[in-house]
Design a protein around this nucleic acid. Structure first.
Lengths: 205, 205
DNA sequence: GTCTATAGCGTGATAGAC
DNA sequence: GTCTATCACGCTATAGAC
């Protein structure tokens, strides 16, 4: 292999195909019903061949889960990095919501696999995945705390509850959002921000 | 069996035990990994015996799913029925949110099975379950439309999106709500209502 | 009503051919 | 690198004893 080969050996390509296939099967069938035969069929290979690239089924699925969380985390970090220094804390939350929703709704099955199998992972896999998840959660924890501390958001509500309700509203969108429809992830983000920041109540005139 | 025996024959009791066990397994393992052996073990019977009470695995699981949706639907209808005639439309939404959250968080595994397997059902089961689900969705559609029409809620937001974001925030709570903690479902409902109606933004003084 | 036994097939993982 | 063959085991569903 030449030095400049964009790092895509034949092995790397097969590995990537197996990961993509595993993400799809995990998202549509759930952890316990994801089989190596189904993954292999989708990746155009055989179940036995997967063991050349991954030590076990769990190691393969853990890599899928980490990739899903990392995808969302990096998208949010990138969006926040593009803001001016010392940004408006509400604007930062809006940017994070849009980045998370775009990642979840249009970055393929990795994020869906994460969300759908969240509550169904066996303890050893959940434990292995927890650190990556907690890191991402901390990003949101800081965003909300910063906005409250700056006086932009109310300080009379439990911040953990706020964060988890917000993530719930976003994550559940994988179950109803239609990529073919006229509503884009960006528009959905705009309505969610508007709702959660300003509220649904009609202003008294 | 005497006429007055509270309708609980031995057969009915076994049937109920099997349904409870199936709801638990479906919630923790997902549709495709739910096996009759696991259900039978939990219900203190044998896999073969399940076929005396249910025609097939799918028929059993469909009954679990319908029961879950009906539980939430009836809880919300009951809560709305207790309100005065011609109720405040925002108060009606608050009552529905509390009833839905209490049902989802403390009525056992039936609602959890619904939420967790929502996106992983094979098409024939999803289709069979769709009418019950749509009926429940209509309850929420009407609640939101009534509040907008009465001028209590803003009319510049897409109502379908509002409804689905709200249901998402509620449904995802099964993944993080801790029944042992000091936060009760009622308190969670109060914060969700406050957030979604009034918004998180700090009022300008 | 509940059981056991059985049918045919699919499972994760490994060994070894090529 | 990828394949086929194989292991012991678990799956849904049915048949028939009790």
């Amino acid at each position: 292999m030449s030095v400049r080969n964009s790092g895509k050996s034949k092995s790397d390509q097969t590995r990537a195909r197996i990961l993509d296939a595993a993400a799809h099967v995990l998202a549509t069938r759930g952890y316990a019903a994801t089989t190596l035969n189904l993954i292999a069929e989708r990746a155009n290979t055989k179940a036995g061949s997967i063991y050349y690239h991954f030590a076990s089924k769990d190691e393969l699925l853990l890599e899928v889960l980490e990739a899903g969380t990392q995808t969302a985390h990096e998208a949010v970090s990138r969006a926040l990095g593009k803001l001016e220094p010392d940004p408006d804390p509400i604007g930062a939350i809006q940017a994070a919501i849009e980045a998370h929703l775009v990642a979840v709704l249009s970055q393929g099955p990795y994020t869906t696999a994460n969300i759908r199998s969240y509550g169904q992972l066996p303890e050893h896999l959940a434990a292995a995945h927890r650190e990556v998840q907690r890191n991402y959660g901390t990003t949101w924890r800081k965003l909300i705390a910063a906005a409250v501390d700056a006086g932009a958001l109310r300080n009379d509500l439990d911040q953990r509850t706020t964060r988890l309700l917000l993530l719930g509203a976003m994550n559940w969108s994988i179950e109803w959002f239609d990529n073919e429809s006229t509503l884009t992830p960006t528009q959905l983000a705009a309505q969610l921000c508007d709702t959660v920041i300003n509220g649904l109540r009609r202003p008294t005139d």
